[in-house]
Design a protein around this nucleic acid. Structure first.
Lengths: 206, 206, 206, 206
DNA sequence: GATGAATGAGGATTCATTCAT
DNA sequence: AATGAATGAATCCTCATTCAT
C-alpha cells in the first residue's frame, strides 16, 4: 500500500515534477479511491516527495558503496559503472527524478538531497583526486559535477534526444552504446582508459 | 511591458517550472496589478512559456551560428566555448530554463524545442563527426548529448553543487575555473587537447 | 457586492461562528456563484471575519461617542442606553457576533477587538468612576464588565432564554421590557435610579 | 480513559467550540493515538459534546440544589454564591463552555440544555419572585437572565477583559474582587444589600 | 479497549481564464 | 493597454466516521 503509493508517486514526480503532480492523480495512479488515504501514510505532498527521493536514491547509494574505493573508475575489474548504467537504463524515471529534485529544490528538499548525496560526493571526490588527466585539485568539483551530468543527463534528457536526434535512447542498442560511450568518455576524462597504450615512463597515467 | 513580462516569466519559469508558476505571480513580478494584462500580450500560459523559451534560446542560437563550422571545438582560434560559458554564467537562469523545458515537455513544448534545437543538433553533429577520439559514427549522438550535459549541467544544477560541495558555482573564480575545465574536458573528449604533454610517439593520444 | 458579502458573512458568523461557517456557504448566501469571488474582496476567511466585526461594531462606537461624557448612565436627559438597546434589538445578530468574537479570539482577532473596544472601555471607565454605589476604584473593571454582560448578554443568549423560559426575547413587548429592566438595573447598580417610588416607611426598599 | 477523553474534549470545546474542534485533536489531547477509540466511548462528536456539557454542568446543578430555596441570594447565611464563584474560578473553561453551548445551539444541544437548565431556571425564578427591588413579575425572566450574564460573563469573557483592561481576570486578587463585586451587585439588584450606609439626607442613594 | 487503514465529503484557497470597462 | 470583477475547476488537505484486527 505504502509501496504502491511510492511507486505511483515516483512515476508521477519523475514525469511531471513536484508542482505538476496532484495528490488526486497520485492516489488514482496508486489505485486508491481517495486522496485522503495518502495522508495516512505521508504527512503531506512534500513528505511524499522526499520519501520517493529517498527510496529512489537508495539503490544508487548502495551501488556506489559496493564499489568502494574504486568509485566509478572504469576498468576490467570494476563493474560499478556498468551496473550503474544498467540500473539507470532499467529505471528510466530515476534520472529524471533526480534531475527534477535538483531543480525543484526547496529548503526541505535541499536538506534531504544534502543528507543523501553529500557523502557520495565526498567519497567520489576522494576517488577522483587520484585520477590522472590535466586536473588540478581545484578542478575536482567541476570534474565530479561533469561526470554526474554525463552519466545522469543521458537518461534525464532522453526525450530531448529523441526529438532532435530521432534516436530512441532507451532501446537496448542505444543503452549498450551509451554504456560503451560513457566508459570511453570517463576513461578519456580520468586518464584511465583501458591500457590501450603504455605511458612512456611506465608509470600509470593516474 | 512585453519585455518586462518576459523577464519576470523567465525568472519564474527557470526557478519553479511551468507548473510551479502562476500567472498571478508572473504579473506581480512584472509589476502588473492584474493578471488579465498578461493575456493582452500572450494568448495563454503555454504561449508565454514558449515565448520565454524562444527569447531565451535565441542568443545561444546566434552564438552557435557565429561559430560556424568550428562549433564549440576548443582551440586558440575559436572563442565560441568561452563565449558560451560567459553567457551562461551571466544568465544563470538560462541553463535551468532549458533543463526545465527538457523535463516539462508537453506536446507543444516538444514542438518548440524541436524547431529551435534540431538545427543546432544537426550542425553540431557535423562538427563532431570530424573529431578525433575513439568515437564511431554511432557514438556521435551520445557524444553530442554528453557535451550538452557537460556544458549546461554545471549552471543548471548549480544549487546542488552548492549544497554538496560547499562551492559557489557562480563566483567569478568558479566560473573561470569551469571555463578552463570545460575546455580541457572537451579537448580530452574530442581529442583536440592542446598538446600539454607529448605522447611518446607523436601519435595523438586518442 | 462587497457589502452583500459582508451582510451574508455577518449573518453566518453571528449564527455559527468563525469555524462553523464555510466560505462556500457565505458565497452562496451572498448570491455569488463561486467562492473564489470572496477572495477578490477579502484576503481570507480571517480577514473577512475581521471586516465583519469592524463594520458591525462601528455603529456602537458611534453611538457611544455621541453619548459623550454621560456614557450609558440612565436618566431622562440621556437617550444613549435606549438607543443602544434599540439598536441591539434591531440587529439581533450583533450581540451574538460580539459574543462569538470574544470566544473565538485568535491572535489577529484579539488585535482587532483591542483596537476597537479598548477606547470604549477607557471612556466607559471614566464615566463609571463618577458613579455612586458601593464601588471602590478597584471594582470598576468588574463593574464595567458586568454592565457589558448585562446589556449584551440578553440578545446574545436569546435562544437560551427562549428555551428555558418560554419567552420570545425579540418580541416588541420583551424588548420594551428589557429596556426598562436594563435602565432600572443600571440605575440600581450605579446609584442613579430615577426616583420612582419613595420607600414609604423606612423599610428596606426591596 | 473515558474521563480523560471528556477532560480533553472539555478543554477543547471550551476553547474553540464544537465546530472548531476535530475528533483527531481531541484524541491527541487525550493521549490516544487514534481517533477511532473515541467512537468506542461516544457515539459521535455531538454525543461527546453533550456528555461534556452534562458532566460540566452537573456540579453547578448540585451546587444550586444544595442552596435550596435561598438560591444565590447573597447574605451571611448563604454561601452559594461564594461557592459558585469559587467553582467557576477554579474551572475557568466552564463558563466558556456554557457560553459556547448557548451560541452553538443545534437542535440536539437545545434539548440537552433545556433538560439541564430549565429546572434551574424555574427554581431560580421562584427565588427571585420573592426579591425586593423595583421588579414586577414580568421583569423576572429579564432579571434571571441578567444575573446569569453577570455571573458567568466574567469568566466567559475573561480574555476580552484581559485585552481591553489590562487586567488578569484569573488572578486570586481579581477573583476575590469579583466575588465581592458580584455579591454587592446582586445585593443592589435584589434589594438584599447589607445596609451598609444610610442615605444621609433622605435623598435616594444615587 | 485500542489501533491502523480506508474513504466520501467537504474544508479553505488558488488556478487560468474571460469580460466589461 | 491595463484593471477590477467574476467564475468554474482544481489545488492541498482535513473532516467525521467506519471496519477489520
Amino acid at each position: 500500500m505504502r509501496e504502491a503509493i511510492l511507486d505511483a508517486a515516483e512515476r508521477s514526480f519523475a514525469e511531471r515534477g513536484l508542482a505538476g503532480v496532484s495528490m488526486r492523480g497520485i492516489a488514482a495512479e496508486a489505485g486508491l479511491r481517495n486522496q485522503a488515504s495518502l495522508y495516512h501514510h505521508f504527512q503531506d505532498k512534500q513528505a511524499l516527495y522526499e520519501a520517493v527521493l529517498e527510496r529512489g536514491l537508495a539503490p544508487l547509494v548502495a551501488l556506489l558503496a559496493q564499489a568502494g574505493d574504486r568509485g566509478l573508475a572504469p576498468g576490467p575489474e570494476n563493474p560499478a559503472l556498468d551496473r550503474l548504467v544498467d540500473y539507470l537504463a532499467e529505471h528510466p524515471q530515476l534520472s529524471r527524478l533526480i534531475q527534477r529534485a535538483n531543480l525543484d529544490d526547496s529548503r526541505l528538499l535541499r536538506t534531504t538531497l544534502q543528507r543523501i548525496l553529500q557523502p557520495l560526493y565526498v567519497r567520489g571526490l576522494a576517488v577522483l583526486s587520484g585520477a590522472a588527466g590535466p586536473w588540478e585539485p581545484a578542478d575536482l568539483p567541476h570534474l565530479a559535477a561533469g561526470l554526474f551530468h554525463l552519466i545522469f543527463g543521458y537518461f534525464a534528457n532522453a526525450p530531448l534526444l529523441e526529438v532532435v536526434a530521432d534516436h530512441d535512447p532507451h532501446s537496448p542498442a542505444a543503452v549498450a552504446r551509451q554504456r560503451r560511450f560513457l566508459k570511453a568518455a570517463i576513461a578519456q576524462l580520468l586518464g584511465s582508459a583501458p591500457a590501450r597504450r603504455v605511458p612512456r615512463n611506465g608509470r600509470r597515467r593516474f
